[in-house]
Nucleic acid binder design. Structure first.
Lengths: 189, 189
DNA sequence: GATAGTTTACCTACTACATGGTAGGGAAAA
DNA sequence: TTTTCCCTACCATGTAGTAGGTAAACTATC
């Protein structure tokens, strides 16, 4: 029962942050969204800092699982890369939001040290996984012109996050698709 | 004399926004930074919206000029691309800030419609210029594997902006360099 | 199994402070 | 004499967070 409210608060906070940025959400917004009083939120999350850390941890776990699912469902490097692109594409909600990581980095000055650490951990996890995708692609030969995996992975993550910004700037997925088209075309048919 | 204060206000606002995001700056901050009283700012910029539009317009003009300067100083496509990468790298201030466009998109929910329009205009201008760089590179043969210019340009802008986020997340230029290394390596020696 | 004690989950009511913006005045330059 | 530029003083609203209380749900003990 506590877990329900807690999860609802995290759901609401994540939705708002991804749409409006970290500084754009307040306990009042959350309260109205979830249907409890503002003060009650402090029972579950004493401060905004604790909430943001919990939010980032849950996001980290969720995306890690999403990557594992991709591994299970797709057996080639190229298929996994395409699935990753689609994952980031879906996070756009048609241009209405970005992924949590992008939303939080932009407002990083308001974040606690702990939250910043979570962001770094998350990015390291993602880069690590993308490296594994390129390693597989090198061995199964499903992607064109693979350079050093670490550099490929860093470039892919930055491109995906940047493409989300582009999409957000026009509130449409079109710029995301444009920006990621060449990455997609590296798949060997 | 008015112009001095106005420019100082824009300087200060841009610095703060690029470090802390749009929602992270207040008239009180500006006042302290520039050395006049909070209320006096309204004489120059009646509302925050007018200030943000002016800021974006000045930024647009500034970067447009920077692109022209690149055109004048560098005659090959690859040299111009490298100069662009270095321009975005310099905007990082060692990981302490991002470019204005990235900072504003993240907090776009707080922006006025006019400010959003300025952002779109700015991005269109940048993409257009990057297209011209790739067109030149295609004809002078200084870059490897050029695909459709419009797609190349969209990918480059997204990569640069995403790489800024990466750098900001670790408050260091290193992730930017990592993410842009492969782009740099497309130069034909 | 009833009862007492504790924890959980929420509430109303509040504080202290920051926010963008306004009203109106003063001094000096055009 | 009007306009420019800045001031003090204020306002309404929104912010995170606190104080203290209530009712229900567990838990331990007799």
């Amino acid at each position: 029962m506590s877990n329900d409210t807690k999860a609802a608060l995290l759901d609401s906070a994540e939705r708002i942050v991804r749409r409006t940025g970290f500084d754009g959400f307040s306990y009042a917004d959350l309260a109205e969204d979830v249907g409890i009083r503002k003060a009650s939120i402090h029972h579950h999350f004493p401060t905004k800092a604790t909430l943001s850390v919990a939010m980032m941890q849950r996001y980290h776990a969720g995306l890690e699982q999403a990557c594992h699912q991709i591994d299970q469902r797709h057996s080639t490097g190229s298929d996994r890369l395409i699935a990753l692109i689609d994952l980031y594409r879906a996070a756009l909600n048609g241009g209405a939001s970005v992924c949590l990581c992008v939303a939080l980095i932009a407002g990083r000055e308001s974040l606690s040290g702990e939250a910043l650490a979570e962001i770094r951990k998350f990015r390291a996890m993602m880069v690590g996984w993308i490296v594994s995708v390129f390693e597989l692609a090198r061995s199964d030969g499903t992607l064109r012109d693979i350079a050093e995996e670490a550099l490929e992975a860093a470039a892919v993550l930055s491109l995906l996050e940047g493409a989300q910004l582009a999409a957000r700037s026009e509130e449409s997925v079109a710029p995301f698709d444009q920006a990621t088209a060449l990455l997609r075309s590296r798949v060997i048919a």
